[in-house]
């Protein structure tokens, strides 16, 4: 309940300041436009479209999801949070906020890909939905803990992609594989290993994040 209250505070604050939403919206718009212009009238393969989808998602996450902690640090309100809640509450609240942002962002990106790219054809929608669900959860968890780490650093902008790359790489590779399977129309049972890897990634990241956050949050 306390975490939900923190999420409500963050969401209300976001609606008033547009700290992350504007950055994400502009990034998605610009990236998709650049891809459209660079492709022109050329035809691209289904697999390449699937790959591009996750590349756009990865870089969009880089541009907007660090705001959860960075905005508190920039406004000087980190100490205020220290004074009103336990570290686990802070992490949970910020994670709920990033989960909502990731789902919103990825729905928009996927929708744009579906209407703008003819080669973006998903034959097994259920498999893609599973990948989308667990993939988004994984991106939100990883982005939240990385944002907490980099919020204390002086060069936040450069550190975020650098730290994210090795942490998100296994997730993105698995998601690429699952998207390929969904485009081929493979069954869920034949993609069991990739789904299991995805779920394990989420569980490991969530557990590690809760264990580490106390140390990151302490000055």
């Amino acid at each position: 309940m306390k975490a939900y209250s923190l999420f409500k505070k963050d969401w209300q604050s976001e609606l008033r300041t547009r700290y992350a939403i504007n950055a994400l919206a502009m990034f998605i718009l610009v990236t998709v436009s650049v891809i459209m212009f660079s492709i022109g009238s050329e035809k691209i393969t289904e697999y390449l479209t699937g790959g591009l989808l996750w590349v756009v998602i990865f870089f969009s996450a880089m541009s907007g999801l660090s705001r959860a902690f960075v905005s508190e640090e920039e406004r000087g309100t980190t100490m205020t949070l220290h004074l009103i809640a336990a570290p686990s509450t802070i992490f949970s609240g910020k994670l709920i906020f990033n989960l909502l942002l990731v789902f919103l962002m990825n729905f928009v990106i996927t929708f744009l890909f579906a209407i703008l790219f003819n080669s973006f054809i998903i034959k097994n929608f259920t498999l893609f939905a599973i990948a989308f669900l667990f993939g988004n959860i994984g991106i939100a968890i990883s982005s939240t803990i990385i944002a907490a780490i980099i919020s204390k650093a002086s060069s936040k902008g450069t550190l975020y992609p650098v730290l994210s790359f090795p942490i998100l790489l296994p997730l993105i590779l698995t998601l690429l594989e699952l998207t390929k399977h969904a485009m081929d129309g493979n069954s869920i049972s034949s993609s069991f290993v990739e789904i299991a890897v995805l779920v394990c990634y989420d569980v490991v990241m969530l557990t590690a994040s809760y264990l580490l956050f106390d140390f990151i949050w302490e000055e």
Binding site: M1, Q12, R75, G76, T77, M79, T80, L83
Partner: peptide, 23 residues
């Protein structure tokens, strides 16, 4: 002096949010 409240909220909204987050 180095403690900051949320500029984008009113005084009462700040106090309401703080109480809710405190549980």
């Amino acid at each position: 002096p180095y403690l900051f409240l949320y500029d984008e909220f009113t005084a009462e909204e700040n106090l309401l949010h703080f109480s809710n987050i405190r549980g």
